[in-house]
């Protein structure tokens, strides 16, 4: 995803700001169930520099992957989403699919090492869903894949940014 923001940056950051307001409900609050202990807080949603997000389940065995609000808006209108076949074992940084927008095929990369167990087939049917709610992990949302995570994947998370750091990163980019 890294890429896309470039030529559309001014419009993109405007849109991204607007979008954060609109889709607040889709972003899990860190002050919900998870804020009970400091150790749990380590497993909040994490982001990559390539604008993907990953959210680990409480038991650290599964996770959901998607592209960030920032990326979704920078991409422009997504006209096709190519999803991986499952199950697929990948390393952090491997391509797990692609989106097409503005004549560009952009790879979606896995933020962590994991095994992809299911994909969001709604995106095949209605690609614009990824523009509307890229960080929404509900059945109507724009998440990309559900994955199984082993130890390596959990430790990959340490190298990623939390929401705050990612926000700062996109503002600087």
């Amino acid at each position: 995803m890294a890429s896309i923001a470039r030529t559309l940056r001014p419009a993109a950051s405007r849109l991204a700001v607007a979008a954060r307001g609109n889709t607040a409900s889709s972003i899990r609050s860190p002050f919900g169930v998870r804020a009970f202990s400091a150790t749990r807080a380590a497993y909040v949603k994490k982001y990559t520099k390539d604008h993907e997000w990953v959210e680990l389940s409480d038991d650290k065995k599964t996770a959901t992957i998607g592209i960030s609000e920032y990326a979704a808006h920078a991409l422009g209108d997504v006209v096709y989403v190519e999803l991986p076949t499952t199950p697929m074992e990948v390393k952090a940084g491997d391509s797990i699919g692609a989106v097409e927008s503005v004549k560009s095929a952009s790879d979606i990369n896995s933020p962590i090492s994991c095994t992809i167990t299911s994909v969001n087939s709604l995106l095949e049917e209605k690609p614009a869903t990824i523009n509307k709610g890229p960080e929404d992990d509900s059945s109507a949302g724009g998440w990309v894949a559900k994955v199984e995570v082993a130890e390596e994947g959990v430790s990959d998370l340490d190298g990623l940014m939390d929401g705050e750091a990612y926000k700062k990163f996109t503002e600087e980019e």
């Binding site: 890294a2 890429s3 896309i4 390539d50 940084g93 391509s95 503005v102 004549k103 560009s104 095929a105 952009s106 790879d107 990369n109």
Partner: peptide, 30 residues
């Protein structure tokens, strides 16, 4: 605006396309 290259010809007021663009973006290389 579609990132294509166009040019005007004497016969037409509408610009003609002479070049079309497409992109492939990966993590490090585009």
């Amino acid at each position: 605006e579609r990132h294509d290259i166009v040019m005007n010809t004497p016969e037409s007021t509408v610009p003609f396309k002479i070049s079309g663009s497409a992109y492939k973006l990966t993590r490090l290389r585009s």
